[in-house]
């Protein structure tokens, strides 16, 4: 960028680098949110946010490196991250409902048991979030 104008090239370089570093830090925070959960929906929201930030990073790189094909990758990445959210939610909901059905069939008196430890969406951090 800048087309040989004095100072403008440097300005573009500094701006793009600064924004890339900023987005990298925010992406790390997103990853932290995805790790500490505490519910599955939390993790999926974090993954969605991470996808958005990566799209912006790729878009910035398109201009910074002057490679036009990166814009195509941007579009594809948006579609794939949308697909990831759909698949994750549908699969998790299907697994949950199936487990609930099995637990109900195996005996209604025991139906409370599978919620204690078997369910994948819950972990120890759950109590912390509800305070």
């Amino acid at each position: 960028m800048g087309k040989g104008i004095e100072g403008l090239e440097q300005a573009y370089e500094i701006l793009f680098t600064a924004i890339l570093i900023f987005l990298a830090v925010l992406a790390l925070l997103c990853l932290l949110r995805a790790v500490i959960g505490p519910k599955t929906a939390d993790r999926i929201v974090a993954v969605n946010m991470l996808g958005t930030m990566v799209i912006v990073m790729i878009a910035v790189l398109t201009l910074m490196l002057q490679e036009d094909y990166l814009a195509d990758i941007c579009v594809i990445y948006a579609m794939i991250s949308f697909l990831a959210v759909i698949v994750l939610t549908k699969v998790y909901m299907g697994v949950y409902l199936e487990r609930k059905k099995i637990a109900e069939m195996s005996g209604e008196t025991k139906s409370g048991e599978y919620t204690a430890g078997d369910e994948p969406g819950k972990c120890d951090g759950n109590d912390k979030a509800e305070k």
Partner: peptide, 8 residues
């Protein structure tokens, strides 16, 4: 995501 949260 909201529907997943409400069902589970």
């Amino acid at each position: 995501i909201a529907r997943l949260e409400v069902t589970t």
